[in-house]
Amino acid sequence: MDPTDPVAVLAGLIRCPSVTPEEGGALALLERLLGSEGFTVARPVFTEPGTPPVENLFAAIGVAGPHLVFAGHTDVVPPGDPAEWRHDPFGAVVEDGEMIGRGAVDMKGGIAAFVAAFARYRRRHGLPPGRLSFLVTGDEEGPGINGTAKLLDWAKAKGERFTACLVGEPTNPEALGEMIKIGRRGSLSCEVRVIGRQGHAAYPHLADNPVASAVQIADALLAEPLDGGTEAFQPSNLEITAIETGNPSVNVIASRCSIFFNVRFNDRWSVPTLKAELEGRIARGAAAERLRKGRSAAGYELFWREPPSEAFLTESGGLTEALVAAVVAVTGRRPELSTSGGTSDARFIKDHCPVVEFGLVGKTMHMSNERVALSDLRGLTDVYEALISRWFAANA
């Protein structure tokens, strides 16, 4: 396989069925490709009780000095119903100038482009004046426990220090060159488990219906906007994603009712201050009397789900400037510097070095018939090669 050809590299990666948490051969392929380019490659496996073990990859080349790291993931979401795909989701079929396959844009395409970009740079210029590495996990689409966070700590313990990081997630809404992500909103998830007393629907006075309290709590959570946004971020939003009792009987009052919600929040909040705000709203909802006339405040328990992530913003500087210049030079577009969207493994990397994200057009990620235009894949390779050249020249 020619490592300078992003199309060939991507086809090879797509043909590896690396559905989270399976390695599927994708990291092994990267190890062979990067090893042939002179990288020293390690593939640590991390474990945690109650979660599957996850293979990861760290590959580095070059000497001490400015250290640019490319971060990404080879794991993909399941393809779903094969009947909804025009071709085998792991077949890497090219049709009408597009390659179809799970992970084509999220994010094996970004990895293929950076492999090819480095291989081309090396043939034209030799090794960069510093250190360059790949930090690749198999756990981004999964729990996010045995992947990037632990791989970063592992690399740090080995003496690696990163100057700047590029994450190759798909960032462009419609066309290559539209958007660079320079930050991400935080994420906080919770279950509010309202405690009631089971009973017959015909005798409500003998029971305590937790659904009525759950409705009041949901109303209190949504009654007022969390904020109006900040200079760099859109307004925070709270979404109630489920209200459930586990009760299949229409004539039985349930003994409990759970509200599940997620908040994507901007830099006005920290995790502690947001929790305090939400806890106050929940308490007010539980104590409200509108649907619980004559009753005391409802009892409830809070379960904060998943590790929360803080909002972060990468200040403008060398990495952002070099990437903007590379994007403009290759695509002719001046990218928007954005903090929109969900979260990514950049939330872990920010604690180690400045980080930005730039990759392919993400319109088909996680969809059936996920696909990438070959022209975009080649264009992204050109952007990455220009970034390598510009960033090391500025930091030498």
Rank of each mutant, 00 (worst) to 15 (best):
A326Q: 03
Q216W: 12
G142I: 00
G183Q: 01
T364M: 11
L132P: 00
V63E: 12
A202D: 08
E315K: 15
D153M: 11
L374N: 09
E315A: 15
P335Q: 02
V105W: 03
R86C: 11
R161P: 00
E301A: 15
G138S: 12
G246I: 13
G103V: 13
R347D: 10
G177W: 06
I240D: 01
K293N: 08
A254G: 01
E160T: 05
A214W: 07
N266M: 02
G109N: 05
A297L: 10
F233C: 01
S255I: 01
V324H: 05
E31P: 03
L222N: 03
L29G: 01
T20F: 13
G72Y: 06
F312P: 00
L132S: 03
G25D: 03
H200K: 07
I61Q: 08
A393M: 06
E239M: 11
A157I: 10
V361P: 00
A283I: 13
A386T: 15
L313R: 12
S309Q: 13
L313H: 15
A254K: 00
R86H: 14
A394L: 12
E140T: 09
R86F: 14
E160A: 15
Q234T: 14
W85Q: 08
A11V: 02
V356P: 04
I282G: 09
P129L: 11
R184K: 07
D345I: 06
V328W: 05
G97P: 08
A207D: 04
L319I: 15
L222A: 13
S133P: 02
L132G: 02
L166S: 11
D219T: 15
Q234R: 14
E279V: 12
G177F: 05
G246Q: 05
L222D: 02
E289A: 15
H125N: 10
A202S: 15
N262V: 10
I388T: 03
T320Q: 13
G280R: 15
R295W: 04
P128S: 09
E191F: 03
A287Q: 04
V271P: 03
D75I: 03
D96V: 00
L57Y: 07
V361R: 01
L302Q: 05
G285K: 01
A218E: 08
E23G: 11
D153H: 13
P44F: 13
S236K: 11
N209C: 07
L188Y: 09
V194L: 11
L274H: 12
R284T: 15
V330S: 04
A386Q: 14
I217R: 03
G228S: 14
I182F: 06
A112R: 08
P173N: 07
G35S: 10
E321P: 05
R123Y: 09
P170C: 11
P3L: 10
G299F: 06
E224Y: 04
F90C: 06
D227A: 12
D88R: 03
V252R: 01
V252M: 00
A212S: 10
A396Y: 01
L188E: 00
E160G: 02
R295H: 08
E279K: 11
R268V: 10
L152D: 04
V215Q: 00
E385I: 12
V9L: 06
T137A: 08
G91W: 02
A254V: 03
A175H: 12
N395S: 15
K350S: 12
E239P: 01
R197D: 01
N247M: 08
V211S: 09
L68R: 05
N395D: 04
V252K: 01
I61W: 07
L226W: 04
F358I: 13
V192N: 02
S258R: 06
D2G: 12
